[in-house]
Design a protein around this nucleic acid. Sequence first.
DNA 1: CCTTATCGGAGCCTAGGGGC
DNA 2: GCCCCTAGGCTCCGATAAGG
Length: 347
Amino acid sequence: MAMYALGLSVLQDEISYEKTQVKQVAYADDLSGAGKISDLKKWWALVKENGPTKGYTPNATKSILIVKPEHYENGVRLFRNSGVIVTKDGQRHLGAVIGTDEFKAKCVGEKVSEWVKEVGVLSGMAKTEPHAAYSAFTHGLQHRWSFVKRTIPGISLLLRPLEESIRKTFLPALLKSKIIIGDSVRELLTFSPRLGGMGITSPEKLADEENRNSINLTNSLTEKIIAQDANGETDQNVILELKKTISRNRQSAQVESLERLKSVMLDDTVSKISTAQETGASSWLTCLPIREKGFSLNKQEFVDAVALRYGWPVEGLPKTCVCGDPNNVDHTMTCEKGDSCASDTMR
DNA sequence: CCTTATCGGAGCCTAGGGGC
DNA sequence: GCCCCTAGGCTCCGATAAGG
């Protein structure tokens, strides 16, 4: 990848801001420029003229000119016969999107409906293999949304359908519990297993924060691009400190909101959360469910383990234990005679 | 002795290349 | 077109090292 940068830097000397009044940036073989349409026309001509001899072959049909609506006519006129596509709406760019709010909403909306479908498929699997589905969600699926969350601002509301599908489709399929997934239960599950949650994040709630963090963290680079400063260096120690601060803030904000959540929860649930925070108490949630190593829980085991973790009613427990005493979750854990699925799960 | 920092490993994303 | 590899980015966890 560094070779692309080196190769393109030779071309960029020819088409620099000083010569073209076009501010530009390149990633791998993707070259982008911003400026007045007339300047962009000269810039494009220079790219076409100088590119091929320097190993860069521009492709007009893969090149897009994005203009503000009021400059559309002018853009079309100046780039007539160039082969370049002119748009006043916008264009996907490096996994994100540039353009009007409407275009942005359309692009993100398309991605979100894809993701909602994926959550639906995983929910179907969760009905028979909840542990595998859970791991696929926490280790995989939810990370696929992070790039969009970080790079496109103001999409929290657009991610609501995704949050809805998690709450109304995925969680009921995963937990099978009679417990109603209200706001507080949903919030509890967003915390990391380490803090007593299940690490099922809310894309809608995290979007703005992740975008802010991303902007904050890349600020030094953004400034250099705007100033077209190709020589300045970013102090990596500053970046490292920023990361630490962000991480610390995130951590303390989580602890804070967990405390707030605890204050509205039943005492029993609060003590269950403390137990779940003990070292090793959540390993079964974070490990990969590899069957050969005995790390995989079957459907019944997984559902029961979650119910025990949060003190939710365990399904199918006999009213009376074989020892004759009235039966409940606590009893199954202590009775010498009883041997229910619930206690098996925890061994 | 307890807390904090660091590192490795699990996964995902972006952009590529090369082999079959 | 699929699979596996490269570079960079991120989170979260647990284990271990360093520091108050």
